Computed example of a mutant assay.
Amino acid sequence: MVKAADLKTKTADQLSEQLVELKKEQFNLRFQRASGQLENTARVRQVRREIATIKTILGEKTRAAV
């Protein structure tokens, strides 16, 4: 799990890249779950929460820039 304090030190570009990678992982996890190959079911929830955290911090950064 990623800490919010660690994410706040990153730039918006780094956060966007990490968001893209997490979305790809989420896509793959959905396919694994649908085909019955998913072993770590808790990872789905972790990825979803990390995506939400990154989106929140990106929103904070854009509002602070205005």
Rank of each mutant, 00 (worst) to 15 (best):
L58T: 08
T11D: 04
T9D: 01
V20E: 04
L7D: 02
K61S: 01
A34S: 04
E60C: 07
K8R: 15
E21C: 02
K55N: 10
L7V: 09
K55P: 02
D13A: 11
T62C: 01
K3M: 09
A52K: 07
E17P: 03
I57V: 12
L15Q: 01
D13Y: 05
A5S: 11
K10P: 00
G36N: 05
T41R: 12
T41Y: 13
A64M: 06
R49L: 10
R43Q: 08
L22A: 02
K23Q: 12
L38T: 10
V47T: 08
Q26A: 15
V44M: 14
T11I: 09
R48H: 12
A65F: 00
Q46E: 15
G59M: 07
R43T: 08
T41P: 00
T62A: 11
K23G: 10
A5Y: 14
V20M: 07
V20C: 02
L7I: 11
D13F: 10
F31T: 06
K3R: 05
Q18D: 15
L58A: 03
D6V: 03
Q18V: 07
R48T: 13
A52T: 12
A4M: 07
L22G: 05
A65S: 08
E21P: 01
A12T: 15
T56K: 15
E39A: 11
E17T: 11
N40T: 09
L58R: 00
D13S: 04
A4N: 08
A52F: 11
G59K: 12
V20G: 01
T62I: 08
K10Y: 06
A4D: 12
G59Q: 04
T62F: 03
L38D: 00
L29Y: 07
E60W: 00
E39T: 10
N28R: 10
Q26I: 11
F27D: 05
L7K: 08
S16A: 08
G59R: 11
K24M: 11
K24L: 13
R45T: 15
K61I: 09
V44G: 00
F27S: 13
S35N: 14
R48Y: 09
T41M: 06
F31Q: 03
D6Y: 08
E21R: 14
E25P: 02
K61F: 02
V44E: 04
K55M: 06
I57S: 12
E21L: 12
A5V: 14
L7P: 02
Q37K: 15
T9G: 01
R30D: 11
I54K: 00
K3F: 15
I57K: 00
S35P: 03
A4K: 10
Q26V: 12
R49H: 08
K24V: 15
L29C: 10
Q26D: 12
R43I: 09
G59F: 04
R49I: 11
R48E: 05
L19H: 02
R33Q: 13
Q18H: 03
